Amino acid sequence: MFTTKSLKSLGAAAGLVASLFAATAAAGEVEDRIAERLTEAVPGLTVSSVRESEAKGLYEVQSNNGETIYTTEDGQYLLTGDLLKITDTGIANVTEQARAGQRLAAMEDYGSEGLITYPASGEEKAVINVFTDIDCPYCRKLHNEMPQLNDYGITVNYYAFPRSGPGTPSFKKYISVWCADDQQAAMDAAKSGKTVESASCENPVLEQYRLGGRVGVTGTPAIVLEDGNMVRGYVPAENLAKGLGLL
């Protein structure tokens, strides 16, 4: 039997559920409106997600090319650049923290097929994913330290990112390396400036190049760590190992 008290409790619970549903629906309408307005205002922009940011009054918009935009609730005012937050321990980059999570999800979604891998010597202590261009001088400098990286227990996965883009000599060179019978030997030769025999086959070079664009690669080498954070540019092997807590 329902008492007056229990009926009131049920009514309050139903009211709470209705309020939460209404708030969720309203939030969804705001996000849809922002996405629609931005898409109309910026030709070629593809919005992948819109969500309320931790900064009150701002919404975080992610595009398919990895760019982050902040907007007011009405979608009229836009902010570009990184959102910083003052914390007890210093300045935190809120935008980069969000990028790291999205980057990690994209990398995991891609999987490990089609990578050129240099495994750690002995026990594997860390894995780094490197978007690389065979002709990039600093990529070659990092590659020269591959034995040292592997000795530190670091496995290196190479992803293709020929900066000059599809159809260029660098792009074709990476395809030749990937299609070689011995990918590591071909990569070592190409990174040292030697000529690699031209080869063609079904390959993931274009797909990896596009993945790089989605996760925010703008130059090489770009090192994606296991937590999704990105180290942009060359870092000496010893410094990289220290940063990973291996030394």
Rank of each mutant, 00 (worst) to 15 (best):
73 E>I: 13
115 L>Y: 01
82 D>Q: 11
55 A>L: 09
148 Q>Y: 06
56 K>V: 07
94 V>A: 14
196 V>T: 12
17 V>I: 14
72 T>W: 11
147 P>N: 09
235 V>D: 01
211 L>A: 01
18 A>H: 02
90 G>R: 14
150 N>L: 03
15 G>S: 06
158 Y>N: 08
28 G>V: 00
106 A>T: 13
23 A>E: 13
245 G>I: 08
181 D>C: 03
138 Y>V: 04
69 I>N: 11
212 G>T: 10
187 M>S: 08
137 P>D: 09
66 G>P: 08
245 G>P: 04
246 L>V: 14
15 G>Q: 15
15 G>R: 02
37 R>F: 00
80 T>H: 11
125 K>P: 07
150 N>R: 12
167 G>T: 12
194 K>H: 09
35 A>H: 01
193 G>P: 10
241 A>Y: 05
89 T>L: 11
132 T>S: 03
196 V>R: 03
76 Q>F: 10
48 S>K: 05
110 Y>M: 13
176 S>R: 05
172 K>W: 03
158 Y>M: 12
169 P>Y: 09
96 E>C: 08
229 N>Y: 10
29 E>I: 09
205 V>Y: 09
112 S>I: 11
113 E>D: 06
163 R>H: 06
116 I>M: 09
141 K>D: 05
78 L>H: 03
173 K>Q: 09
88 D>P: 12
100 A>E: 09
88 D>T: 02
144 N>G: 14
50 V>N: 02
176 S>C: 07
107 M>V: 05
20 L>Y: 08
90 G>P: 08
202 E>S: 11
69 I>R: 07
236 P>C: 03
56 K>P: 13
207 E>L: 10
171 F>Y: 13
85 K>T: 08
156 V>C: 04
167 G>V: 01
145 E>K: 12
182 D>F: 07
